[in-house]
């Protein structure tokens, strides 16, 4: 699907990404984590062809991003920006979603079908003004207009920033459903709880270098790597580590261990 070979990127003579090689397969849910300025957003822009690598090659479904226009790559990759206001340009939610559909499809019946499906999925009123909605709702409108076009790959640049818990979970559950249907998801995220709950694979960036690439639980066990990237594992994992329990990342796992220990102690004390 997406293949990066020795990719480096410099901006104003400053190296933002250096020598990154990775491969992302169809259907993967990958999270990109790292501190601010680590190069996460740049890596995403490199993947969808908005930025061309200074050296190395990036291919998406076999297409070299250096020679393929971003607007052509957009048929394969949907990109959700952190700020939905940069994307929304129509006066109603229905028009906004239709705008994306008009670009992606030519068949009018298909456009109507996808419009209806998308509005239902997000429970939107087609006539509402997107500029009068809350930030979380505008983020949902932006996401809706992207997924309406049925991209094979979804790149999300901090999709949950500034959202409350309910809005965040609504967006993430929709993304999860899409991933379950086989859509590849690449997500930049600062919330380690969300990363742990949804991502299968993590790419850790620090100062433009890919310092770790692996399965989610394995990465969260690598304290030194997380320290290098100025990150902390989820709170429950840190609490478990203090009690000497390894490989505990969820409240349920922690509860099971604690209850088991209490039972054992009761048995021993009679």
């Amino acid at each position: 699907m997406i293949n990066l070979q020795n990719v480096s990127f410099s901006y104003n003579n400053e190296k933002v990404l250096s020598n990154i090689s990775l491969h992302i397969d169809k259907g993967e849910f990958t999270a990109i984590i790292g501190s601010n300025g680590a190069g996460k957003s740049t890596l995403c822009r490199i993947m969808n062809g908005l930025l061309k690598p200074s050296s190395g090659t990036v291919t998406v479904n076999g297409m070299d991003t250096r020679t393929t226009k971003s607007s052509i790559l957009a048929r394969h990759i949907g990109f959700l920006f952190q700020n939905p206001d940069r994307q929304i340009c129509k006066n109603t939610v229905g028009e906004e979603i239709r705008f994306s559909l008009d670009i992606a499809f030519t068949d009018k019946s298909m456009i109507e079908k996808r419009l209806f499906e998308t509005l239902s999925l997000f429970d939107f009123d087609a006539d509402s003004n997107p500029f009068h909605l809350s930030r979380g709702e505008r983020q949902q409108v932006a996401l809706a207009s992207i997924i309406a076009a049925e991209p094979e790959i979804l790149i999300l640049d901090e999709p949950t920033t500034g959202l409350d818990y309910v809005e965040c979970m609504k967006i993430m559950s929709i993304i999860k459903k899409l991933n379950d249907k086989g859509i590849t998801v690449i997500m930049v995220c600062h919330d380690m709880e969300i990363v742990l709950d949804f991502a299968q694979r993590i790419l850790v960036l620090a100062e433009g270098r890919l310092i770790a690439d692996g399965e989610t639980r394995e990465i969260f066990k690598m304290e030194e790597i997380l320290r290098q990237a100025s990150l902390l594992p989820p709170q429950i994992a840190r609490l478990a580590a203090r009690f000497g329990f390894d490989d505990v990342f969820y409240v349920d796992e922690m509860t099971d261990i604690v209850l088991k220990r209490i039972k054992n102690r009761r048995k021993r004390t009679g």
């Binding site: 822009r45 607007s71 949907g78 990109f79 920006f81 700020n83 940069r86 994307q87 340009c89 207009s145």
Partner: peptide, 19 residues
């Protein structure tokens, strides 16, 4: 800067601003 961001966002949707 904002306009650059908007153009990037629209190009990512498939609007042929890179024509």
């Amino acid at each position: 800067n904002e306009m650059t961001g908007i153009i990037e966002a629209q190009t990512s949707r498939g609007v042929q601003l890179d024509t």
